[in-house]
């Protein structure tokens, strides 16, 4: 699989995309938190923000946004933080984040059933 590496990226690009910020409040998003757009992009909006809102018309995980935007996961989290703070997205956190350390036996059973039916 061929893809660009951040190492070969125009060095200014990631800096510009995040406005120079280097870290998100990581606790705000899990790699599989589902992002749901709450509005359409508006003119003048930063293009990455606009693309996220288009992709998040249906729930979409943080890692999927990362793959589609070709930006590292932590850069996407910074962009999502902006959208969350301005109410443009809502987040559905995974149960492993909201109830850490516990796997619900009912959940495991659902996974088994679904895998058998694959």
């Amino acid at each position: 699989m061929i893809r660009r590496s951040v190492d070969r990226e125009d060095p200014d690009r990631l800096y510009t995309v995040t406005g120079g910020r280097t870290r998100a409040d990581d606790a705000a998003f899990d790699s599989v938190s589902l992002i749901v757009g709450e509005c359409e992009p508006t003119p003048g909006m930063q293009s990455e923000h606009a693309r996220i809102l288009l992709l998040a018309r249906r729930p979409i995980a943080v890692v999927e946004l990362s793959a589609k935007l070709r930006l590292p996961v932590s850069v996407v989290k910074i962009l999502l933080r902006d959208l969350l703070d301005t109410g443009r997205i809502t987040v559905r956190h995974p149960s492993s984040m909201t109830r850490p350390g516990k796997i619900d036996p009912g959940t495991l059973k659902q996974v088994l059933v679904a895998l058998h039916n694959l």
């Binding site: 589902l34 979409i60 149960s95």
Partner: peptide
């Protein structure tokens, strides 16, 4: 294939 609109939880 898109995720269903009702998706609320994700496992890894």
């Amino acid at each position: 294939r898109l995720a269903p609109p009702s998706a609320v939880d994700a496992l890894k």
